[in-house]
Structure formats: structure tokens, C-alpha cells
Design a protein around this nucleic acid. Structure first.
Length: 910
RNA sequence: GGGCGCAUAGCUCAGUUGGUUAGAGCGCUUCUCUUACACAGAAGAGGUCAGGGGUUCGAGUCCCUUUGCGCCCACCA
């Protein structure tokens, strides 16, 4: 029989790519029940996730690693459960950020997008996409993502473009898309409109400017305050509160716009606050959302005093052509000279800034395309309200409702070139619009040939909103769409609940008539040290690629998964933390090495038969076997419960604790001794194999690489061993498709054996503790006398009377010199005495025993025990005894009895 | 202005139907290269679970409140 050998340290560097290739080539990422393959069974319900498509411009950051790990965990878990599982991968064309990249590239070449023209620009952008657009996908593979790459999609590929076109035309024909001049958020840097969601508000120090609005033909004036004096040029009214006695007399009169001399009315509106500023408000409907609404109410004219380049238009008269801030300065200076200025004061206010370029957003009137969103929003609210869609954690439902209930029409047109072009053509002859599924050659209304397409493209989120079904073939009724839709879980960060999740729900319901997914799982964000959003500029970002190079993918995955609680943020893990999990990975590897060598040591059949179920009958199990098996069964149940409630982090921690603290620290140590004895050898090796096998299965969704690699070694080693090979008889060829562990509570252990092992652990700990305290050299084997009444302690008594090799080895005792007696007439001289529950342990530590110190130590222990007894007596005498559930009370009673026994023993030693 | 989250050991954090001596990793102290692992093993120190009040036989856990930090939403110039 060949001895199976494993390298001393786990080499993740060579393993990871090899294992990933094995998975992918093996076809394991494809759903086990596939409508495109023979033998398809439509009645089996699949598990489906569509990946939140990363931007093609994206560079891998920890956020990616977190979401990919979470989704991979979910998919691997369901796959192992035997459920046909599909994870659809893909990327997003990322209109704005891709366009910026290519523009920068052109700029470096000394040209610009305007110079090369639209067609050439798009050609260049596609070329850029071909070259760099796949990088993020490659990086995602590296994390171990078990996506079905044969179904990979791109938001701008043909199929998805068709979906976008269909969606637009559908809404257009239904009257839910309209075009018109509205006040929108203008991004001066990008020179495009952006949606409300793409505007961020930041609190900043600004100046509040007070000035005089002179009344026509009078020396009287109304004092007005503004933060943006340049917008005076676009004023079309001055508003005051209708009941403000200070200004009442001015209502209906005319005011004169400073420096321009334009005449505007003085109006009354409830919106104006009497307390704030001067109590009078200048109205600039062309550049302020509130003013715009007031203007609507009062039918005021709307002036655009800034153009697309945020330069003053002809409305600004002498200021035309100036930049908005140059104008502010110059106008204010001129007003000062004209004695129209009252004062300036510092003022803290919220400034709208672009989410992307961070420049100040300019509200402007512009002709754009909008989606009339309210009808869609109502359906989306209903879907969550009636439970068809569940949001995890639940508290985000409130946030979701709140947003949808107050939603405003969605501006979907962008003045960019990279994206889905708006499928509307304007006729130069009749002036009407043609919106069509296929590019028209003639005007649908007059048949004229002089038509031209709208130059704008759609908001990237418009195509993302279709993602769960467009990736499955919609609008075609493909087999994929029929089988895999609706998808199961939408896993993403809560920061895009509005941007993306809500829109997918709205669009899914509208276009497919069904929900796009059943569950929304929102993970927390990874933040920098001070709780801020993570960003490289704060210097808190770790580079996942470097980390994976240095510590391995599994270590990083495990760290992030274990640190993740639904909806709660986590701080960027430090190097140390990932290192600790690298150590865990190494631990697993080394336990694997031990188990593999243990298998190799089973070379002769001990003559005992396995049961029909290929397992030893349980009466041959040692205490340790029963104990570890019981712990493992508990773990399997707990992990299942935690997975069902999406508590993946807690599940990971529990497996970690079991594997390290129970399996490695105790069972493996006990196994070393058990393997030396013929009677227990085969049984021990078999337990090692079974516990490792199940542990690896439980760990696989968290750390797929080591587990897969180690499992294949385990499988080989078991397979090559004629005595143990039946253990692996039903194992598949790879861990990735090995069945998920089911609890088997009925087999292999009795509660008594488990508690007895735990008593043994306590004894071992007590002795180790004493050795450390007394500075007993680790290699010094010491004799021991155990005193334990047989009556009432049969199980423990049997252990101490039987084979003592395990306990001797673990506690550093001399197993040839261990004696067990039912009672001892008197305390032996020169011994140190320990009392553990009902066991008395006497250790002859000549030369180390100081009678006085011993007395003090025992006295202290007695005092502690008595304190516990007092506490429990008080507790059991209280209402607790008759109000708490019986098992809880019983537990405390037993504890009290144990302490009393210990107290007696201690007293007799003093 | 509304809504939400967080506050537990020196540091980073677990602790989800309330069960009675609160856990981990890192760091720290002492010992050990014991034939899976020094990326390790053994032992140990370290917490009035932010403050206050309440419900309960019992509260880190549920309710109210105060304070501090953070996030989201919102049209006060």
C-alpha cells in the first residue's frame, strides 16, 4: 500500500488556479438541470442568482470580493444540496465612467471626442472594452466564483440591447415615457443631465448675500438673501409670505432686477418662511427646484441664465459669457458699487454635488426623457408588502417604501455617446417623433425620409434594471427565461437599493408580469477606519489582489464572510486578521495531513466488521469518538439553521471553532493515542475521515480552494486503503458537488459518553493548569492517584479504570503509575490535591509542594466553591424555582449538587 | 427636519425566539521546536456589556430615555 504524502504547508498559489480550472472544465458551474441539455426536468425548482454586474471600468476592490464571496457561498451551498443552481455572470457598460476613461485616453493623444466624432468615438470605446473590459471578470474568477461563464452577459451586447429597446418602446407606447423641458440636475463637468440619485448633498460653509430688491419708481426696497447671487439674473419674481405684515404692502407691486433693470412682480406664497433670512425670497425658476414649483403655481416665466457650459446666457445682459462664479463676483461687485448690497455673512448649507465628478450640480431647465414612475412604483411597493419579495434585513423594507412612496419621475436621457441610444427619430418634415423596435428609415407619420435619431443615450441604470430577465433572454421567451425566472436571491449592497434593486422590481413587474427575485439580501458596506465609505484617498483600502497573492484567496474570503452580518457595515479587515484566517487554512491543511497519514497507518484489518452501513457499531466507539461525533452533529444542525436565516458569518465562526478547538485540539490529540492501539485504530481512522469529510463539506462554500484540494487527497487516500475504502464509496469526483451534510442525530453516541468526555477534559485542564502553575517541566511524566467513588460515577470510573493512555498523554501523567481508588483513608503526604467535580486527584510533586501554599490554594478554591453554593442556594430559594422552566431549574440544581460534592472533598483535604 | 445603525476585553469584533460564571481573533505574560501544524501547542491576565430608568423569577439580549459616533432620506432662500 502506497503511503500518501502531503506537503507540509498548503501551497495556495499553485492550487487555486489549478482547482478553478478543474471546476470550470468539469462543467460544475453549469446548473445540474439545464433546459438547454438533454434530460431536462422542468418540475425541479432551481436556485438562481444574477450577479450585480460590475462596471467594465472597475478595478477589483474588497467590496467586490465580499459580494462575490457571499453569492458564491450561496450558490455552492445550494449546489451541494442537489438543487440545480445557476449564477449568471456579466458586466455593465458603465456609461459615464467608461466614456470618461476613453475621453482621457483621447486627451492623452491630443484629441477629443468632439474632434473624432461620434462614430469613431464608439469604435474606440468598443476597442477599449475588448481590451480592458474582461479584466474584472478574470479577477472575479480568481475569487473562486462558480458562475456559469457560458451564460456571461454584457449590458451592451446584442441581446440586452434588444431588451432595452423593447423596454423603452413598451413604456413609450404605454405613455409612461415622455420628453419635455423640465428642471433637471445638470453636471457641468460631464455636460449631461443626471438623475436625482446621482446627486449628493454635502454640508459646506457658504456665504449668505443680503441685498436690496428696489421697488419700481420708489426708494423703497425689499431685502432679500441668497447663496447664489448670480442667479439674480434669472429672477422672475420676489416672493413673500401672504401674512407677513412687513411686506404686505408690496404684494402685487413691481421690483427691479439689479443691474438688468428687468421688471418682475412681487408675489405672495405660503412657501416663504417669515423667520428665515429676510423673510423675502427671490424666485429663480430656471435654476432652483423650489422656485420652479412656485413659478408653476404663479405662472411665472422661466428664464435660463446659464447654458450647458454653465456660462451666462444672453438673459444676463452685460454678464453674458461669464462663468457662473466669475459672474457671481462681478455682479456682486457691481451691485456693491450701485449701493444695492446690504451685507454678507457666513452660512452653513447643503451643496448639491455630482456623485461622480464631485463638482457642483446646476439645476437647469432642459429637454430630457423621463419615465412616469408612479404606476410602476405602486406595483413595486405591493410586491414587497404582500411578501412576494422579502428584503433581508427587514428594516430596509421601510426605507424601500419611503423612497418609492415619494418617488419622482426618472430622468433617463444622458448627453453621452456610450450607451443604449434612445430609439426615437425626429422628422424634419413634419416634426413628429417615431419610436420603433427596429431602426426606421421613414417617418411613421408623414413617411418623410428626413429623420434623425435622438442623440442621447439612456441612463445606465435603465439597462441594469432589466438585468435579472434580460440576461435570461427576455424579451424572447427562451427556455432559460421560462425555467430560471424569477430568480431566487438578489444579493447586493444596501447602497444601491434605490439605484438598482427598486428599479429591477419595478421593471420586472412591468415587463415580465412577475417579480424578478424572491429575496433581496442586502450586505453591509466595507468602510474605512473612521466609519467612512472606503476609498483609496483615505488610504484605508487594502488591495485584494495583493492580499490574495500573499495570503491566499480562501483567507480573504473567510475573513470577509465571517465579518459580514446582513445590512451591517464592516471595517476593512487589517492584514493581521486575514493572516489569522490564513493560519486557519493552514490548520485545516495540517489536520488533513494527519488524517491522510492515519489512513496510511491502517494496513491490517483488525478483524472486526463494519456494519452494513459501512460503519462500526457504536459500542466500539471510544469516548472521544462519541463526543466529537455529537459535537459535529450539533454543528451540522446549527449551520443549517444559520444558513436558513442568512447568518453566514455566524455559521462560519461556528465551523471554525469546532474545527480548531474541538477537532484539532482535542480529538486529533486523542486520536494519536487511539491509533497506537490495535483495538481502536481502525475505528479512530474512520472517525477522523468522517469528521474531516463533513467539516470540509461545511467549509467548502466559505473556502472552496483548500477544501476541494484537501478533499481530493482525502478521497484518494481513502480509496487506496482496502480497509477504509468503503467510507468513500459514495463520494463524487469533486467536493464542489458532494452532498451537503445532513444531521444524523440518531447514530453513534449517547449523551452519557459525551458528558464523560467533557469531565475528562476538565480533569486534563485542571492538571495542565496545575503543572503550569507549579512550573512542572513539560516532559516530566508524573504519577497520579485518582479517588472516585464508583457509585454514581460509573461511566467516568470506567474510563479511569480502563485505558488511561489518552488522559495520561493529554495531561502529562505517567500512565504506568496511575492508580484509581474508591476512597482514601487519609490525604497522602507530599501530594498536591485537585478536586474536579466528584474526582479527587493526588499528584506527588515532591520538592514542589509547600504545605502552607497548598493550604492557601485549597482554601481559596473552597471559598470560591462556597460562594457558588451560596449563589445557587439563593437562586433556588427565590421565585426562580417555581417560575422558570423545569429544565432550567434542574440544570441549576445539578450544578449545586456538584459544587456541594466538590466542597466536601475540599474540606476533607484541609 | 425625518428615518436607521452602532456603542461588549488594550485593538477589531461575535453573541437572532431573554435562561443565570459574557466569547473569538490580534496584542500581552509564562512555558514548550511533544513524530499534522511554531502559519503551532499548553497555561494565564484582561470586561460594573456607553449612562439612567422600566418590564421579568431572570436583561448584553425586550421597552423608554440620555450621551457619543456613523449612515440614509429631505425643497428653507
Amino acid at each position: 500500500m502506497t503511503e500518501y504524502q502531503l506537503p507540509k504547508a498548503y501551497d495556495f498559489k499553485s492550487t487555486e488556479p489549478r482547482v478553478y480550472e478543474m471546476w470550470e472544465k468539469g462543467g460544475y458551474f453549469r446548473p445540474s438541470n439545464d433546459p438547454l441539455k438533454p434530460g431536462f426536468d422542468p418540475s425541479v425548482r432551481p436556485f438562481v442568482i444574477s450577479i450585480p454586474p460590475p462596471n467594465i471600468t472597475g478595478e477589483l476592490h474588497v467590496g467586490h470580493v465580499l459580494f462575490v464571496s457571499l453569492e458564491d457561498l450561496m450558490v455552492r451551498y445550494h449546489r451541494m444540496k442537489g438543487i440545480p443552481s445557476l449564477w449568471v455572470p456579466g458586466t455593465d457598460h458603465a456609461g459615464i465612467s467608461t466614456q470618461i476613461k476613453v475621453e482621457k485616453m483621447l486627451e492623452a493623444e491630443g484629441t477629443s471626442r468632439e474632434q473624432v466624432g461620434r462614430e469613431e468615438f464608439l469604435k474606440r470605446t468598443w476597442a477599449w472594452k475588448e481590451k480592458y473590459g474582461g479584466i474584472i471578470s478574470t479577477q472575479i474568477r480568481r475569487i473562486g466564483a462558480s458562475c456559469d461563464w457560458e451564460r456571461e452577459r454584457f449590458t451592451l451586447d446584442d441581446g440586452l440591447s434588444r431588451a432595452v429597446r423593447e423596454a423603452f418602446v413598451h413604456l413609450y407606447e404605454k405613455g409612461l415615457i415622455y420628453r419635455g423641458p423640465r428642471l433637471i440636475n445638470w453636471s457641468p463637468a460631464l455636460k449631461t443631465a443626471v438623475s436625482d440619485l446621482e446627486v449628493e448633498y454635502s454640508e459646506e460653509q457658504a456665504t449668505l448675500y443680503y441685498f436690496k430688491y428696489m421697488l419700481k419708481g420708489s426708494d423703497e426696497f425689499i431685502p432679500v438673501a441668497t447663496i447664489r447671487p448670480e442667479t439674480i439674473l434669472g429672477d422672475t419674481a420676489v416672493a413673500i409670505h401672504p401674512e407677513d405684515e412687513r411686506y404686505q404692502k408690496f404684494i402685487g407691486k413691481t421690483a427691479i432686477v439689479p443691474m438688468l433693470g428687468r421688471e418682475i412682480p412681487i408675489i405672495a406664497d405660503d412657501y416663504v418662511s417669515r423667520e428665515f433670512g429676510t423673510g423675502a425670497l427671490k424666485i429663480t425658476p430656471g435654476h432652483d427646484p423650489n422656485d420652479y414649483e412656485i413659478a408653476q403655481r404663479h405662472k411665472l416665466p422661466i428664464l435660463s441664465m446659464l447654458d450647458a457650459n454653465v456660462k451666462v446666457t444672453e438673459v444676463g445682459g452685460p454678464y453674458a459669457g461669464l462663468d457662473r462664479y466669475e459672474c457671481r463676483e462681478k455682479l456682486w461687485a457691481d451691485m456693491k458699487a450701485a449701493a444695492l448690497v446690504i451685507k454678507e455673512e457666513p452660512y452653513l448649507t447643503t451643496i448639491p454635488r455630482s456623485e461622480r465628478g464631485h463638482e457642483i450640480i446646476e439645476p437647469m431647465i432642459s429637454t430630457q426623457w423621463f419615465v412616469k414612475i408612479q404606476p410602476l412604483a405602486e406595483a413595486a411597493i405591493q410586491a414587497v408588502r404582500d411578501g412576494r419579495i422579502r428584503i433581508i434585513p427587514e428594516r430596509f423594507e421601510k426605507v424601500y417604501y419611503n423612497w418609492l412612496e415619494n418617488i419622482k419621475d426618472w430622468c433617463i436621457s444622458r448627453q453621452l455617446w456610450w450607451g443604449h441610444r434612445i430609439p426615437v427619430w425626429y422628422c424634419d418634415d413634419c416634426g413628429r417623433q417615431t419610436c420603433a423596435r427596429t431602426d426606421p428609415l421613414l417617418c411613421a407619420h408623414c413617411g418623410g425620409k428626413n429623420i434623425h435619431q435622438d442623440p442621447d443615450v439612456l441612463d445606465t441604470w435603465f439597462s441594469s434594471g432589466l438585468w435579472p430577465f434580460s440576461t435570461l433572454g427576455w424579451p424572447e421567451g427562451t427556455p432559460d427565461l421560462k425555467y430560471f425566472y424569477p430568480t431566487t436571491i438578489m444579493e447586493t449592497g444596501y447602497d444601491i437599493l434605490f439605484f438598482w434593486v427598486a428599479r429591477m422590481i419595478m421593471m420586472g413587474l412591468e415587463f415580465t408580469g412577475d417579480i424578478p427575485f424572491r429575496v433581496v439580501y442586502l450586505h453591509g458596506l466595507i468602510r474605512g477606519d473612521e466609519g467612512r465609505k472606503m476609498s483609496k484617498s483615505y488610504g484605508t483600502a487594502i488591495d485584494p489582489l495583493t492580499i490574495m497573492d500573499e495570503l491566499g484567496t480562501d483567507a480573504l474570503r473567510f475573513t470577509l464572510l465571517v465579518g459580514s452580518t446582513p445590512g451591517n457595515d464592516q471595517t476593512t479587515p487589517g492584514y493581521k486578521k486575514i493572516e489569522a484566517n490564513r493560519n486557519f487554512v493552514n490548520k485545516i491543511w495540517n489536520v488533513g495531513r494527519f488524517v491522510v497519514s492515519a489512513i496510511g497507518s491502517v494496513t491490517t484489518d483488525d478483524g472486526r466488521r463494519m456494519t452494513g452501513d459501512r460503519r462500526r457499531t457504536t459500542d466500539e466507539w471510544t469516548l472521544a469518538d462519541s463526543w466529537i461525533w455529537a459535537r459535529l452533529q450539533q454543528l451540522v444542525r446549527d449551520v443549517e439553521r444559520l444558513f436558513q436565516t442568512y447568518q453566514y458569518g455566524e455559521a462560519g465562526r461556528q465551523i471554525y471553532d469546532f474545527f480548531w478547538s474541538d477537532f484539532a485540539d482535542w480529538y486529533v490529540e486523542a486520536a494519536k493515542l487511539q491509533l497506537q492501539k490495535e483495538e481502536t485504530k481502525t475505528q479512530t481512522a474512520s472517525t477522523l475521515v468522517r469528521v474531516l469529510d463533513i467539516s470540509l463539506r461545511l467549509l467548502h462554500p466559505f473556502i472552496p480552494f483548500v477544501t476541494e484540494e484537501l478533499w481530493s487527497h482525502l478521497r484518494n487516500a481513502v480509496g487506496q486503503n482496502s480497509i477504509l475504502s468503503s467510507l468513500g464509496a459514495e463520494w463524487p469526483e469533486a467536493l464542489i458537488i458532494a452532498p451537503w451534510p445532513e444531521p444524523r442525530p440518531e447514530e453513534g453516541w449517547e449523551a452519557e459518553k459525551v458528558t464523560t468526555f467533557q469531565q475528562m477534559q476538565e480533569i486534563v485542564r485542571a492538571i495542565r493548569n496545575l503543572r503550569a502553575e507549579k512550573n512542572v517541566k513539560p516532559d516530566r511524566r508524573i504519577p497520579a492517584t485518582f479517588v472516585l467513588a464508583r457509585e454514581g460515577n460509573q461511566a467516568l470510573h470506567d474510563v479511569l479504570a480502563g485505558d488511561r493512555k489518552v488522559i495520561a498523554s493529554l495531561a502529562g501523567l505517567d500512565d504506568a503509575k496511575i492508580t484509581l481508588v474508591d476512597s482514601l483513608p487519609s490525604k497522602p503526604e507530599g501530594h498536591v490535591t485537585l478536586v474536579v467535580g466528584s474526582v479527587e486527584i493526588h499528584l506527588p510533586l515532591s520538592g514542589l509542594v509547600d504545605a502552607e501554599a497548598e493550604k492557601a490554594r485549597l482554601g481559596k478554591e473552597l471559598a470560591e466553591t462556597e460562594a457558588q453554593i451560596a449563589r445557587l442556594e439563593k437562586l433556588l430559594a427565590s421565585d426562580f424555582a417555581n417560575k422558570a422552566p423545569a429544565p432550567v431549574v434542574q440544570k441549576e440544581r445539578e450544578r449545586l449538587a456538584m459544587f456541594r460534592e466538590t466542597m466536601e472533598k475540599l474540606k476533607s483535604q484541609l
